[in-house]
Amino acid sequence: MSNNQLYDFFRKLDQDGVMLSYKGFVSPELISCILKIVEDKLNHSEENPRTRKKVYNVLVESLQNLYHHVDEDPNAKDMNPEESRSVVVAIVQSHDAYYIQTGNFITRDHLSALLPRIDTLNLMDDLQLKTLYQERLSSAAISEKGTAGLGLIDMVRKSGNKLEYWVSEINPDCSFLCVQIKISKEK
C-alpha cells in the first residue's frame, strides 16, 4: 500500500464506521486483545451499558466460535499452519447499530451442517430460542474443546437479530463464509 492509498484506507475505515478490523490467525491472546480494544472504544462511544454489554457478549461468542471452528485455506499448501487458518473480523458501527462481521474458510461438509442450523435459528422467536438454549444447556455434553453447541443460539438470542451470511465458493470442497450479526443500539 502506498502512502496515498493508506490515507484512502484511513478515510474509508472512518466513513464506514469501522471500530476495528483484523485479518490473520485467531489465538486466545488475540481474542483478549480484540476484546480489550473494543471494550475501550465502546466505553468512549456508547453511553448505554446494556448495548455495550450485548456487543461484548456477542463478540466473545463470535470470536471463540471462529477460534474453535475455522478451517484451512485451500490455497494454503505452502503457508505455515497459522497463516492457513486466517480469518477476517470487523466491528462496525452505524448511527443505530453495531455490526460484528466475521469471515473464514469452511469445508463443504462443515458448511452443509452449519447453514441449516443458522436458517433454523433465524426462524425462531425469543421464546423458542430460550427453550432451545435451556434444552441444549441441560442435555448437551461439553466437548474436549470446551464447546457445547450453544454459541450460535446465544448470539441470535442476545443480539435479537437474525444471523446474516454470504458464501463465496472457492472450489467444490471449500468456501469462504461471511457472517454478520447486528446489535441494535438501545435508546
Binding site: 457478549n57 466473545v60 441441560s138 461439553i142 464447546t147 450453544l150 446465544d154
Partner: peptide, 13 residues
C-alpha cells in the same frame, strides 16, 4: 459480569 457459553455449560455441570 460476563460469561461465555462454554462457562455456562461448565457452571451447570
Amino acid at each position: 459480569e460476563y460469561f461465555n457459553t462454554s462457562s455456562s455449560k461448565s457452571m451447570l455441570d
